[in-house]
Design a protein around this nucleic acid. Structure first.
Length: 357
DNA sequence: AATACGGGGCG
DNA sequence: CGCCCAGTATT
């Protein structure tokens, strides 16, 4: 068993040296700040999707102190469109912690790194190995897949037992003096060769000893135990125009898009037309003392998220006197660019802008 | 232990 | 439409 494990590690490092053609701007990066930034951006995010965001952030905030000094709204604007917005909030908190507690210098011990907001076991191991040559094995989607297939492990990866088993194995396989190269190798290998769909088993340097291949389990592994429930939600966005101004608010509730902005939102349990919306209690309360005229009703648009399907409709209304909306901001159209919005809303705004020209 | 959290790409 | 992506925090 020890031999087969040694073989696995050696082959992987060899593949990395001879055949790995994957290039990314942060590969071989020595600055822990840049490594950290790339890892946060790439959590549950494809390299191609995260790349432009990485470039933007490095350009705007070349070091932790710069990021720490940035206004939160500005940072959210840069993050807009990338998703999982808690990452942005936590990243800023971590930058400020680094600036104050560590005087802007990224901490170099695993426990210190892991203690920063938004850094879990994967990201801590990545920074520790890539940035500080410490012997911590990364455990991400690629590693789960490569290990489960090569060693034929059918333990579900989304369980405590699975995480322990794969984590222990990954750590055993790690050559302590080459942790960075090994971690890089196994992730690239998972992304390029041992891919989720249609892996390149024919040319895989590990194929002869791959348990999944021998047992016809390649498309079964890795095993996941849970299947997610997707719920439907119906969002009715009210763009209320007072001269050139529009009401917006920051989403603060524990829900999707926390810390992003929106227009006045009335959520319903099913799709509604304008006359049904007008019957809603929230709507009647809103306009009980103020007359309005309907300017536009958009077609329904759908957005598919991981756990929910959002059906959105935009109702543009015009009023002549202000509404009593204490927790909303009255913002001029031009200034909308200063605020971060979810994609559903930016898409609508952009489509609207096109109509004007 | 289970669940929520975005957006995009691919078959 | 389902699966997956350099996962983490919260309940």
């Amino acid at each position: 068993m020890a031999d087969s494990r040694l073989f696995f590690t050696e082959k992987l490092l060899e593949w990395n040296q001879l055949s790995n053609t994957r290039t990314m701007p942060w590969k071989g990066e020595k600055d822990p700040y840049r490594i950290w930034l790339s890892e946060i951006i790439l959590q549950q995010t494809r390299v191609e999707q995260g790349l432009p965001y990485y470039e933007k952030f490095i350009k705007n905030y070349p070091n932790a102190k710069k990021l720490a000094a940035a206004p939160e709204e500005e940072v959210f604007r840069l993050w807009q469109g990338l998703g999982y917005y808690a990452r942005c909030k936590n990243m800023l908190a971590a930058a400020r912690e680094i600036a104050t507690t560590y005087n802007g210098k990224f901490p170099g011990e695993y426990e210190q790194i892991k203690a920063l907001k938004g850094i879990g076991t994967y990201t801590a191991a990545a920074i520790a190995s890539f940035g500080f040559q410490l012997p911590y094995a990364v455990l991400d989607g690629n590693v789960f897949r490569v290990l489960s297939r090569y060693f034929g492990i059918e333990t579900p990866i989304d369980t405590t037992a699975g995480k322990k088993q794969f984590g222990d194995l990954a750590q055993e396989l790690l050559p302590a003096n080459q942790s960075a190269a090994y971690n890089q190798s196994i992730m690239d290998f998972g992304a390029v060769v041992c891919k989720p769909q249609q892996p390149a088993c024919g040319t895989c340097p590990l194929n002869r000893k791959c348990q999944a291949r021998q047992q016809q389990l390649v498309d079964v592994l890795p095993v996941k135990s849970k299947k997610l429930q997707i719920k439907k939600r119906y969002f009715n966005h009210l763009l209320i125009e007072l001269k050139d101004n529009i009401y917006i608010r920051k989403r603060t509730e524990k829900d999707i898009w926390q810390n992003l902005h929106e227009f006045i939102l009335i959520e319903t349990s099913e799709a509604v037309e304008l006359d049904e919306l007008r019957q809603q209690e929230a709507f009647r309360e809103l306009f009980k003392d103020v007359p309005f005229t309907v300017v536009n009703v958009s077609a329904p648009v759908k957005q598919q998220l991981t756990h929910q399907t959002i059906h959105s409709r935009f109702f543009t209304l015009e009023i002549k006197q202000p509404l009593p909306l204490p927790d909303h901001l009255l913002v001029s159209r031009k200034k909308l660019d200063n605020y971060a919005f979810p994609k559903t809303i930016t898409d609508f705004l952009h489509s609207k802008r096109l109509q004007l020209f």
